[in-house]
């Protein structure tokens, strides 16, 4: 009886350790990053691998995405809607989004 109870407590203890470990900053690096403001809206148009004329974003380096956002914002890169959307994000916000996308699956 005591042994069964002890085992149950051990399992509980291990579960707690696992929960604490999962919540630690160390483990968080491998868990999906919390999406920065605005990041989840991109997939409304951008399928991971692209779709027809709309390019995909999966697998692109963060710098490429951040640079594109900057070029859309200052008008260097011609666009139909991305120029209007990019103007809603600062360099810092665009970089955070780019890093989140680049870290994605």
């Amino acid at each position: 009886m005591a042994t069964t109870r002890h085992r149950r407590l051990m399992r509980g203890g291990l579960a707690l350790l696992a929960a604490l470990w999962a919540a630690s900053p160390h483990a968080a690096q491998r868990a999906p990053l919390p999406a920065p403001a605005g990041a989840t809206a991109c997939s409304g148009c951008h399928a991971p691998a692209g779709n027809g004329p709309v390019p995909g974003l999966a697998g692109r380096p963060a710098a490429e995405i951040a640079d594109a956002m900057a070029a859309f914002r200052n008008g260097e890169r011609p666009a139909t809607v991305m120029d209007r959307i990019a103007k809603g994000f600062s360099d810092e916000e665009a970089r955070a989004i780019a890093e989140w996308i680049a870290a994605g699956p």
């Binding site: 997939s43 409304g44 148009c45 779709n51 027809g52 004329p53 709309v54 809607v81």
Partner: peptide, 20 residues
């Protein structure tokens, strides 16, 4: 050309969002 490309983007958007 711009109008035609936005029509193509519209169709791609619908396909992408319904897929997501």
């Amino acid at each position: 050309d711009v109008r035609a490309s936005e029509a193509a983007y519209a169709e791609a958007w619908f396909d992408t969002i319904t897929g997501e």
